[in-house]
């Protein structure tokens, strides 16, 4: 019995066709594109779209994962398996220098830590590979400053975004021209919402990291956050671990990604849960809440 009727998937077909168009356009126009692969659900969808776009050929660009060293072990395991399964080339980049010098979120705070282990690392990884275009799975509905992001987002030679000076983007005529050293971030999922992503994962049976599914996990409850205990999460004085049935709504680094209480252990249950939900998915990400407009500031500096 089909869970979702064909008529309900009509808009997914339109989104899929648009994303495939964007992937092909960028693959044709750039000399060295790369796909930023973050292991999350959006990356999984983007990867499936790339498989479709170039079938029966292989995906004509490598995947790049920026590994902060603070990711959940389940994510790394999934990443290595899935890249092999899809038959894509996988590049893993770490800011080894910062890690060797002891960079961590507890001592540096989330902003500095993100700056070093994500943004800096990303820019270095892109420069090292000589990539002139990078696909990212960001969606415009994720956060306010992303609503004005272009599908082709121009970055200067330092990888910075200038929100007030973006190229106009009309029809599906994307302008990817750039000088040496400059680059374009390409967002094929711009027009998808979180809900669309889940519907598509369901309809296409796309594999995702098990952390998205609810199960009993050992956690510590801190303020409004539920932090899954993993190597690296430091208990504060007076905190006690407890077992909570929970799941991740979006995946990030262990110390900065909270879980939500949930019984949803299948994709349909997650979809059902979302409908009764009234909180946005990045709400459990500590980094977005540092100050108002913090995502915009990070993006200006080169973050996705």
């Amino acid at each position: 019995m089909p869970l979702l009727e064909a008529s309900r998937l009509e808009h997914l077909k339109m989104l899929e066709a648009e994303s495939i168009f964007i992937l092909r356009e960028a693959a044709a126009e750039f000399a060295h594109p790369v796909m930023l692969y973050s292991i999350g659900k959006d990356s999984s969808v983007m990867l499936r779209l790339a498989q479709k776009a170039f079938y029966p050929g292989k995906i004509p660009f490598p995947l790049l994962h920026i590994d902060t060293n603070y990711k959940f072990p389940e994510m790394i395991e999934f990443r290595d398996w899935y890249a092999r399964h899809v038959g894509a080339e996988l590049i893993v980049h770490k800011n080894q220098k910062a890690l060797d010098e002891g960079a961590n979120p507890y001592d540096l705070g989330t902003q500095k830590c993100c700056g070093l282990l994500k943004t800096r690392s990303l820019l270095d990884g892109l420069a090292e590979g000589g990539f002139d275009a990078a696909f990212g799975g960001a969606r415009r509905d994720e956060e306010k400053s992303r609503a004005k992001e272009r599908v082709y987002s121009f970055r200067d030679s330092l990888g910075q975004w200038d929100p007030k000076n973006q190229r106009p983007e009309l029809w599906n005529l994307y302008n990817g021209r750039h000088h040496k050293g400059e680059s374009i971030r390409v967002f094929p999922l711009s027009n998808w919402t979180e809900f669309d992503v889940w519907l598509y994962i369901h309809a296409e049976k796309i594999p995702i990291v098990p952390l998205y599914f609810a199960k009993e996990r050992e956690v510590v409850v801190r303020g409004n956050s539920i932090l899954v205990l993993q190597t690296g999460v430091h208990l504060l004085p007076g905190e006690k671990p407890q077992m909570v049935k929970c799941r991740m709504r979006s995946l990030g680094c262990v110390p900065c990604t909270g879980a939500i209480r949930s019984d949803a252990d299948t994709v349909p249950k997650i979809i059902e849960e979302m409908i009764s939900f009234r909180r946005s998915e990045r709400e459990n990400r500590v980094i977005d809440h540092d100050e108002e407009g913090s995502m915009e500031l990070k993006k200006r500096e080169g973050y996705f």
Binding site: L3, L4, S7, R8, E10, H11, M14, L15, F195, D196, L199, P268, I271, E272, I275
Partner: peptide
Amino acid sequence: IPKPVSAGTL
């Protein structure tokens, strides 16, 4: 799956 949210065309 409750009925509302998403459907049809864009």
